[in-house]
Simulated scan of single mutants.
Amino acid sequence: MLKSPHIEVLLDVKTTLGEGPVWDAESQRLHWIDSADGRIFRSTHDGRELRSWHVGEPIGSMAVSRDGSFFLAALKSGLHRIDAASGEQELLVDPEPDLPNNRLNDGKVDRQGRFIFGSMDTLEEQASGRLYSFTPEGQLSTLDEGIVVSNGPCFSPDGRTLYFSDTWTGLIWSYDYDPSTGAATNRRTFATVDTSTGGAADGATVDADGYLWQALVYGGKIIRYAPDGSVDRIVETPVLKVTSLAFGGPEMDTLFITSMAKPPLPRFPEDGQQRGSLFAVSGLGVRGLPEPRFGA
């Protein structure tokens, strides 16, 4: 039975556009980013040992490498390898050199070590974005296209269903995902997002029971969807602009939530004093799944 949650500010780092939390079970560290300011953060589950890396440009998502020596980072200029010790950067591939108004956005690693990530139009108007797969061997492929703002890629517990959102469609999609080839096929609507409060689909994760959790950005809510796409639970959050979420901690039962301190465009709402904080939610009675590292 689900319990009543307790929500607290773990770190008041005032991220301009906090995003992409990733709990690395091997190192027992939480990673997250400031997408607008170009920073990667890392801390313990209780907010100690805070460290950050400046990457010099907007960042959409990141993953920890198999041996932990580098981050794979989706920057505006392409996928980069960032050395965890020195901070040195190496461009691996630029998927969209012909689309200067696009940038790379949300991403997750599949169970086989591929990085699944999307791109977006920075004005959030044109359907110029795509959904990509990048293998540890360096092969880039396109999984889907015609996307305005790519968000929320995540996988079912068996790794055979890929979930993904184009934020302003109001839809969460699911695909049949082939773990052996990395192909995503048979796109269909998994759930329709309730945008009546002004919120929209943002980052997402799947728990150990196969339920999808999604941040309703600008709506100040976290929505838990059952495997059949029905709304199972709604958690109200202290700020409107919650952006993404990840389960982690020693028992994988803490839900970490990122938020933004400043909206990216003038038409989006401002927020309260806790805007830009990293939140920790306990007492949910739910456990998450460890996220894979990037690499073979």
Rank of each mutant, 00 (worst) to 15 (best):
L2C: 06
P5R: 15
H6P: 03
I7E: 09
I7L: 14
K14V: 02
T15N: 11
G20F: 00
D24W: 03
D24T: 12
D24H: 07
E26Q: 10
L30P: 04
D37V: 01
G38P: 05
F41T: 02
R42C: 14
E49H: 14
S52Q: 05
S52C: 08
W53C: 15
H54I: 10
V55Y: 06
P58W: 00
I59A: 04
S65C: 12
A73F: 03
K76R: 09
K76S: 12
R81L: 06
A85K: 11
D94K: 13
L99P: 00
P100N: 08
N101A: 09
N102W: 00
R103G: 01
R103N: 09
L104P: 01
L104R: 03
N105S: 14
D106M: 03
V109P: 13
V109G: 10
R111V: 02
Q112W: 01
R114D: 10
G118V: 08
S119N: 06
E124H: 12
A127Q: 08
R130Y: 07
Y132F: 14
S133R: 08
S133L: 08
F134K: 07
E137G: 05
L140V: 01
D144E: 11
E145G: 09
P153K: 04
P157H: 07
P157G: 13
D158R: 08
T161V: 15
T167P: 00
W168P: 01
L171W: 06
L171Q: 04
I172P: 00
Y175R: 10
Y175P: 09
D176W: 03
A184V: 03
N186K: 12
R187M: 01
R187H: 11
A191T: 08
A191C: 03
V193S: 07
D194T: 09
T195L: 14
G199E: 12
A200Y: 04
A201W: 04
D202L: 10
D202Y: 01
G203L: 01
A204S: 09
Q214W: 05
A215M: 06
A215D: 15
L216C: 07
V217I: 09
V217P: 02
V217F: 02
G220Y: 08
G220T: 05
K221Q: 15
A226I: 02
A226T: 02
G229Q: 14
I234S: 11
I234E: 14
V235E: 15
T237Q: 09
V242H: 00
T243A: 08
L245A: 10
G248Q: 13
L255D: 06
L255C: 05
T258S: 00
M260T: 03
A261Y: 00
P263L: 01
P264W: 00
L265P: 00
P266R: 08
P266I: 03
P269M: 09
Q274D: 15
Q274C: 09
Q274M: 06
S277E: 04
A280T: 03
S282K: 13
L289C: 10
P290R: 15
P290Q: 13
A296M: 08
